[in-house]
Amino acid sequence: MKTHAIALAAGVLFGFGLALSHMADPNKVLAFLDILGGWDPSLALVMGGALAVFMPGFAWLRRRSRPWIGDTFHLPARGMIDRRLLGGAALFGLGWGLAGYCPGPALAALTFNPREAVMFLAAMIAGGLLPRLAGLPSRLRRRRMYQR
């Protein structure tokens, strides 16, 4: 129950932040990514603001062995920088720049632009199933315990 309450509260903060920052506005995203002519640099400050909190916070968390709830920090494995990572990131960026949505903002846009958001999210879920249809192994479960 506490797990759900914390996840819900974090989600509310996250979604409110996406809306307040206008990261959820696809035209704002396109105006940030399109560097030709008039350029809107605002969204660089979204990432900057998020890192200004998360980076020192993570450094502080490293000294703890476990979260408030649960036994371990679930952190992604320190894997290789391989073609799958870079190719995936390249495709993701292309999709991001073609409509102005990444996953979080698309969910936030359900509340003010449901037509586009539903279409985008349905296509995104379908796109996420393609590797499995092609027989590629899943990497979703590749996690390791965090050790200090």
Partner: peptide, 29 residues
């Protein structure tokens, strides 16, 4: 040219996003 720059709301929203990510990690890992 710089157009439509909204630094205050972008930064404030970014801080909230960072806080949310930190809460999720500190709270449930």
């Amino acid at each position: 040219a710089i157009v439509d720059f909204t630094p205050a709301t972008a930064l404030a929203g970014g801080l909230l996003i960072g806080l949310a990510a930190l809460l999720l990690l500190a709270g449930i890992g």
